[in-house]
């Protein structure tokens, strides 16, 4: 895949003459190769966060050495309507902890598999250049820790997931998350940043109140639940994400799958900027952005009018029947020029 991408990039460069693909082998403004960037200082433990929170922006710092700690667990939690589900997680949350680094950073990733796990787990980060995205190097049986080190060569928003067999089951149980590799200088400052991941769940009843993974439904790609952040209502009620009129919002949205894509849409908003597929190409004035399974996007918009804005997968049966629904609550003053219920305001 990567080869094809590079090849396409080269062809494009040849065709268009001056075009240099921004995402290849370093994108620093001064033209320095990312590979040559020196990660300074002693290793620091990176802040990681559960959704919908994200760690602090990298700002204008240079490349560093970071230690990222993740623990794989198999835990029971509520999935929807009082039903429990046995989730498999990174750091006890679905999605797993958000990891935020800078291009040129060197990351020492520690993957510990909880002692009471029944299965081996590992991690494949799409931000990693190298065999298996780290999966081969991080295979950890219950109670063991595996470590590998990588250099973040390409800026962008990337999915990570467990790649232990059977992979669809590990992902289907919630083993995915996002890692953001910020470009040198960081992303532009915004007022709010949120972390959302969509994933679908294929279930059968184990007991009256406990659901578990149903492989037949997974193979048929016929989920019972399509959810944001691993739980129905995770972005509703008191869990709504928030902003005030006039503020800017950035959503890091990823899709874990294991199978479905997302037609990501916020009802009543237009994305001012979309980093398509989480890469470096920015599109503007987008209504709905397509996010592949195992892919991500960054969407940004300014909120101009108060209200509750519904976040959906615009494959709408998933939103209205299977749970892929959340809300952004915008508070502040109404501006009749933007929107008015009735005739032209006087």
């Amino acid at each position: 895949m990567k080869h094809n991408f590079i090849l396409s990039g080269l062809l494009l460069a040849l065709t268009l003459g001056a075009c240099k693909t921004n995402n290849e082998a370093g994108s620093a403004a001064n033209g320095q190769s990312t590979l040559d960037m020196v990660a300074e200082g002693a290793p620091e433990v990176a802040e990681v966060t559960g959704a919908p929170k994200v760690p602090a922006p990298i700002g204008d710092r240079g490349p560093k050495k970071l230690i990222v700690n993740l623990e794989t667990t198999e835990i029971t939690g509520e999935i929807a309507d009082g039903k429990q589900y046995t989730f498999w997680t990174f750091n006890n949350t679905v999605p797993g902890s958000f990891i935020r680094v800078r291009e040129g950073d060197e990351v020492e990733l520690h993957l510990k598999n909880a002692a009471n796990s029944v299965l081996p787990h590992n991690i494949d980060l799409h931000a990693v250049t190298g065999p298996g995205g780290g999966a081969e190097a991080t295979s950890a049986v219950p109670g063991k820790e595996a470590v590998f080190t990588f250099k973040a060569l390409n800026p962008g928003l990337f999915v990570y997931h467990c790649a232990a067999p059977p992979v669809p089951m590990h992902i289907g149980n919630g083993m995915y998350g996002l890692i953001l590799v910020e470009p040198a200088g960081g992303l532009k400052k915004v007022d709010h940043e949120y972390y959302i991941m969509q994933g679908e769940f294929y279930t059968k009843a184990k007991t009256d109140s406990l659901l578990e993974f149903d492989n037949d439904k997974a193979v048929a790609e016929s989920p019972d639940y399509v959810l944001f952040n691993g739980k129905k209502g995770s972005l509703l009620g008191k869990n709504m994400i928030e902003a005030k009129v006039g503020e800017t919002v950035r959503i890091f949205i990823g899709v874990g799958g294991p199978n479905l894509t997302s037609s990501f849409h916020v009802i009543g908003e237009i994305f001012d900027n979309v980093y398509l597929e989480g890469g470096s190409t920015v599109s503007h004035n987008v209504q709905t952005t397509m996010i592949p399974s195992g892919g991500a996007a960054i969407v940004e918009f300014k909120v101009d009018y108060p209200g509750e804005y519904v976040i959906v997968d615009h494959s709408l049966s998933r939103a209205f029947n299977k749970g892929a629904i959340g809300k952004l609550k915008v508070t502040g003053d109404k501006n009749a020029k933007v929107f008015n219920h009735g005739t032209f305001a006087k």
């Binding site: 002692a115 009471n116 029944v118 299965l119 081996p120 295979s139 950890a140 049986v141 219950p142 109670g143 063991k144 232990a164 067999p165 059977p166 089951m169 492989n215």
Partner: peptide, 22 residues
């Protein structure tokens, strides 16, 4: 799938490893 799980478990092992369910 079951066999994948077994082989994946075995592949993660080293001879001096001790595991709570092995």
């Amino acid at each position: 799938y079951a066999a994948f799980m077994r082989f994946s478990m075995r592949a993660g092992l080293k001879a001096n490893y001790t595991v709570a369910n092995l």
